[in-house]
Design a protein around this nucleic acid. Structure first.
Lengths: 244, 244
DNA sequence: CGTCATTTTGACTGGAGTCAAACCGGGTGG
DNA sequence: CCACCCGGTTTGACTCCAGTCAAAATGACG
């Protein structure tokens, strides 16, 4: 019926839970307060505590921490359908910053609205918590990536994970996806230097595994790439008790 | 009155929230089902889903993931007062394994009991969620550690963080703490080889910063160590809306 | 056409891994 | 009581992955 059903969040949650009209209405209500932000200017400053979360509708964001020496570690990327600052709202803490990578559109969700929505439909609360738990599993996987994988496998794994996430909201397929990240973004996320990221990308490309170029990621040989990256999407699948 | 007040969990939560008799009673109730496990044998296998969480009362545990190539990445260490598998209970997923590092004692908390306790006192639920959010902040900091710090700073930072956590449950001070970890544990947690961990520890010791030996960690010059490690305990402080 | 961000490439360096061998302390069994 | 073993620690020699520095190439944009 309405455009809500096209919203990335609805698409994403639909992978876990069958949403009824009630929940769709509540979600529609949450999307009420649309806002826009331009690329580059931080959304929430490190350390600051916010009383509202955002549901990302369009564009890409990253969350990161700056080190005293000026280097940056990207914790995670947010793509359409993801929450921004959900934890800050629920738990009144925000220990990192958000930077829009592209111009973005997001729905602002005051803490009160969110809690009210959860109170209205427990199923929605469950679905959102699942999404949050998946985000956390991704942070853990990211940690494993940094701690125990070489640069080439690390990059490959990252590109596959991103593809899987995008596919959930209809923005990617088995063959590839659009990706506005620069090689600096990859470097900051993967704990590598931009120069080395470039070398690794070249190597992956020349080996016919994956091509990262002109804002597009193309899986040239996805099966071999999955094998090379030791990519096991289990931690993303979340086929929980599928509420019907 | 009872021994509950000595429980590490109570000690820890007391840092965030003033607990009333009601909450102390509920906590006491949760501690009812004491169980013991021996060092080395896994508590929960990777991938398995559990219907109970544990409150660690005595001993140390680590949570980790094994890579296809056999190497291991330790996600986090659990010390007395920490929950084990809290997320698995709330969200029905468990994507990593737990290994007792020492013999341990823990209280088994069935999912139902936990949810009932939360329903009884929202303040307790809030306190526990705070603790969980702190754990998550630590995982994020761990990620930054792996991604952006050299081995020496990484090790120093880790030892300081551990000390701060132990201090919260009365098991450590500004001068040092007892620590049953081997250098292999440090290596698996910090994404280093055991050999290199050893070299770094020697260097830190010879520089008069910190000594890791015979199951003890001694801060030889804590101020300089804090500075060297760029350790900012803000993410641990969690001085939230201090419910009274 | 110039500017700026981003990508690409090369040469060199250094931090951390690997391999290998001692060493040490505490159990344990002959 | 001593020899042995075993997990953990320590040290050295060598290798190599990834960082740094520097410069050129590319490309979007005003």
């Amino acid at each position: 019926m309405t455009a809500v059903e096209q919203s990335p969040l609805v698409l994403k949650l639909s992978n876990f839970v069958v949403l009824t009209d009630t929940e769709l209405n509540v979600l529609h209500h949450l999307h009420r307060r649309g806002r826009s932000f331009v690329a580059g200017r931080d959304l929430v400053q490190q350390g600051q505590s916010e009383q509202a979360a955002y549901i990302l509708a369009k564009g890409w964001v990253c969350s990161y921490k700056i080190q005293p020496d000026g280097s940056r570690q990207i914790i995670d990327f947010q793509i359409p359908g993801d929450f921004l600052g959900l934890r800050s709202v629920l738990l009144r803490t925000s220990d990192h910053s958000f930077e829009p990578i592209t111009d973005i559109q997001a729905a602002e969700v005051p803490a009160g609205d969110l809690l009210a929505a959860f109170a209205q439909t427990a199923r929605l609360a469950t679905a959102v918590l699942w999404a949050a738990s998946r985000d956390e599993a991704m942070v853990v996987e990211h940690l494993v990536n940094l701690g125990r994988r070489d640069a080439d496998v690390r990059v490959a794994h990252f590109l596959l994970e991103l593809g899987a996430r995008l596919a959930l909201v209809g923005m990617g397929s088995k063959t590839g996806y659009d990706c506005p990240l620069t090689q600096y973004h990859l470097a900051d996320a993967l704990g590598l230097s931009a120069v080395h990221v470039n070398r690794v990308l070249r190597q992956l490309r020349e080996n016919g595994l994956v091509t990262f170029r002109n804002g597009k990621v193309m899986f040239d040989d996805r099966d071999r790439l999955v094998q090379f990256a030791e990519f096991d999407p289990e931690y993303l699948d979340q086929t929980g008790p599928l509420l019907t």
